[in-house]
Design a protein around this nucleic acid. Structure first.
Lengths: 315, 315
DNA sequence: TTCAATAGTTGACATCAGCAACTAATTGTC
DNA sequence: GACAATTAGTTGCTGATGTCAACTATTGAA
């Protein structure tokens, strides 16, 4: 006999609320939210969630995790301490000396990969026996819901680290965009393809990274940080989808690169860009990068001014 | 850098798993599964869930709750004890003396109504600002997902107590079914309508009840138990949708009536049915009902044999 | 320079949750 | 009909989980 408390001029809303609540009961049970041991691991649901935030956001501040997961800071501090004890994480120093940015160790990376694989398999088991079209429809429905409910909230986008399939997607989207806007053609696509392929081939965990901004499965932007040498990191391939501009995604991605580079122990970050990409230039400048040199080139068919920027990290 | 552990010949599956896991993170956070205080109430998520199971399943055994929610029996026993201490529930005796069926008190009913209203409003707030068509689509999507994921599981149906809108739905479905199968016409609809209307008008919480079997928002069957007098309850309007027959829904609904009647202190249950409804007859007999009398009638246009059955509960 | 605010940690404590041992009743087996 | 095995439910014990307030170190703003 469940009853609505308030008069409601919108009957569809009442139906939706009923559906959502039913779904809620179903889903919490189904997904093991009521089971304190997440996916049969030795981690609790909260711990697994925090581990995920670290792995996907490194370097990440306790504050950021606390906000993302919604957990008590003291409690979080202890969980992080436990991770450190297990040798999963290392803590660095940020530009602000109060901050203790968290990074994964090699051991932590392995532990996360194992958890991640188990979670993947467990989730896949849920879908076992569903006909193919239903599987596809389900993933679309789920994305759609997260998109809708997320947009009613303030959550405009999420940032995560790269996974299988991202490189191709990044290459395609960037090539298309540069073609549409600047007409830089297939030579640009070849260049981007080489960079992403090289990234995959030579990826050094903990020293290099690629971040993807997305919303409900749609890629909204990305950036790369790769090792130039032991002391110098290079920021590459920053891009934001036109539909997602003005949300601060570009600045967010660049800030992550800088924080990562600092935590990883680089002394400086360099990057190479074009004068025509004015909004990117603004972001670099705001983050503290300094224009070092500029030169004319017509590598992409049209005459362009290419620029070198640098940010010194070491004290 | 999340990666699949296993080679997968089905790429759509990997996409779906990724979507589901993203959704999982989003949803647990959004729905407060990580927050031990449910919807700002003094109850934890688990307690709220148990309270719901009691309110919707009364009389319910601890065992049934334990299975539905997936919680440790000892822990559950203590939570139930706490509810009893607050005066929310009373515990009866079942046919099996080991069982301690749980029923709500008037106070408990009020407390649940308050919680339910708050939950409704909270959930409605989630949907605030969503355009109307999105709200409708969302509820459809959510039902669809629960249906798909549920059917991959063994969960064929759920049983809940009645809420606003159920009476009309029950009346319509039963009338249509009896018309289609037996041709009993609008006179039957009028009769059913009178019964459901009277139920609404005179509903005695704790003494009377209506149960709805459903799956993902689709009504699969229902049954009523109403007070004939202090000692005698009457079972009415048992029906199961043709598509859902063979799942044991009918037997389940009747068993709930009997358990409820016993817990509510009735001495016997009577019911009136037609000889032609053979599967219903079997259920009544299996539950211990005894055929008392039969007589010919042609109330519904065609000549029929109507029957009176009785089940003695008192020792 | 001083004071409020912020990132993070720690101690004390209450509640949550799992496990195993227990009672009481029932069912199955010979 | 006796007796072992099973079942519903409870209780004691314990470690894990989570909360709150006080604390340090640092930063930013007046």
């Amino acid at each position: 006999m469940t009853q609505a408390a308030t008069l409601d001029p919108n009957p569809a809303l009442a139906t939706a609320v009923t559906s959502l609540r039913r779904f809620n009961r179903f889903y919490t049970r189904r997904m093991g939210a009521l089971d304190p041991h997440y996916m049969g691991s030795e981690l609790s649901l909260v711990e697994a969630r925090i581990f995920y935030e670290i792995a996907v956001g490194e370097p990440v501040l306790a504050k950021a995790i606390q906000e993302a997961v919604g957990v008590d800071p003291g409690y979080l501090s202890r969980i992080i301490g436990k991770f450190a004890q297990r040798g999963w994480i290392a803590r660095g120093r940020g530009a602000d000396a109060r901050e203790r940015p968290i990074m994964l160790t090699g051991e932590g990376r392995a532990a996360f990969a194992a958890l991640d694989a188990r979670t993947f398999d467990e989730t896949a088991r849920l879908l076992d026996g569903l006909p193919g079209p239903d599987v596809a429809a389900l993933s679309a429905a789920v994305d759609w819901i997260a998109d809708r409910l997320g947009s009613a909230d303030g959550q405009a986008y999420q940032v995560r680290t790269w996974t299988v399939g991202d490189m191709g997607m990044v290459t395609a989207r960037q090539a298309i965009l540069y073609q549409q806007v600047y007409g830089w053609g297939t030579r640009m696509e070849a260049l981007i393809g080489e960079i992403t392929t090289a990234f995959l081939r030579d990826f050094q965990p903990g020293r290099e990274q690629c971040w993807i901004a997305e919303r409900a499965g749609r890629m909204l932007g990305s950036v790369f940080l790769v090792a130039e040498d032991d002391r110098v990191a290079r920021l590459r391939l920053l891009y934001v989808e036109p539909e997602a501009r003005g949300l601060g995604i570009g600045a967010d991605l660049v800030a992550r690169c800088v924080a990562f580079a600092r935590a990883a122990g680089y002394r400086e970050i360099i990057l190479w860009t074009h004068a025509v990409l004015t909004s990117a230039r603004k972001i670099y400048a705001a983050e503290g990068f300094v224009l070092e040199s500029a030169e004319k080139s017509d590598e992409f068919g049209t005459p362009e001014v290419s620029e070198s920027w640098r940010l010194i990290l070491a004290d």
